[in-house]
């Protein structure tokens, strides 16, 4: 069985700053991490690998060359290898174009039975790429999965929905997006780290995927960002400073009473 795990490199939470002048986000490579939910996806793949014979786990990522680090980390945690999609042609891709590239990569890997990824990434938070890849590949998808049971030709999943859980069975190959509760991600080991350092991970460009530049990047993206702005938050705020007189709390109670709340 071959499992592809999609991992996205994202900024560590302390690592995103806004330029106060321009309002543009400043990103640095240092301090990047694997998207936390993708770590859960990876752990789930490794769990399956531990429980069955003949499971191969491959980490697939798309991003700048520095995203190689994320793939190496996945290898250090126990993945058998991986591939990085990188190059000019991919820059500026929206979720559809990203899904197109990743779907092509999964096809090229060949014989992938199961695709796993996090339900969303902490930077974009769209949660769209996974299902879009499934649609592009024409395979079934299950989202928000917190429990996964693998058989030879099907998976049984439990997905978290409003007010409860849904249990669904889908045939393989399939794509599954996972939530945090599915497992507790492990750690890379020293032997894994050393192995990852020496591992050769191929880098594929648009040509390798047989995709034309029109299908990727900004050209292949149906959506456009019109503008980015700091939100105007508009409420007139009555501000009081806490002191030791109890005044602020009294004002609050009066305010709430005026609004007929408490």
């Amino acid at each position: 069985m071959r499992i592809a795990v999609l991992i996205k490199q994202v900024p560590g939470t302390d690592n995103v700053k806004m330029d106060p002048e321009t309002g543009v986000m400043i990103r640095t490579n240092k301090g990047n991490i694997i998207n936390p939910l993708d770590e859960n996806a990876l752990e789930e793949a490794l769990r399956i690998k531990r429980s069955r014979e003949d499971v191969q786990v491959l980490a697939v990522s798309m991003g700048p060359e520095s995203a190689m680090k994320a793939i190496k980390e996945a290898v250090a945690m126990g993945a058998d290898g991986g591939v990085l999609l990188s190059g000019r042609a991919f820059a500026g891709s929206d979720t559809i174009a990203t899904a197109r590239a990743l779907a092509a990569a999964i096809s090229k890997l060949g014989d992938v039975n199961l695709v796993l990824c996090g339900e969303r990434a902490t930077d974009g938070e769209t949660g769209q790429t996974g299902p879009m890849i499934a649609a592009t590949l024409g395979i079934p998808v299950q989202t928000y999965v917190q429990r996964l049971e693998v058989a030879d030709d099907a998976v049984k999943v439990e997905r978290v929905v409003e007010g409860g859980f849904e249990q669904v069975k889908v045939q393989l190959p399939a794509l599954i997006t996972v939530v945090k509760g599915i497992n507790e991600p492990g750690f890379p080991t020293l032997t894994g780290k050393v192995r990852a350092r020496d591992a050769v991970v191929p880098v594929w460009g648009a040509d390798d995927l047989g995709l034309s530049p029109e299908e990727l990047g900004l050209k292949g993206s149906p959506t456009r960002v019109v503008k980015i702005f700091s939100p105007k938050l508009s409420r007139s705020t009555l501000l009081h400073r806490q002191d030791n007189t109890g005044r602020a709390v009294n004002e609050l109670l009066k305010f709430l009473a005026d609004r007929d709340i408490v």
């Binding site: 938050l233 508009s234 705020t237 602020a248 004002e251």
Partner: peptide, 8 residues
């Protein structure tokens, strides 16, 4: 900024 009433 989104609050109607704030206590610092």
């Amino acid at each position: 900024q989104v609050a109607d009433f704030g206590i610092v």
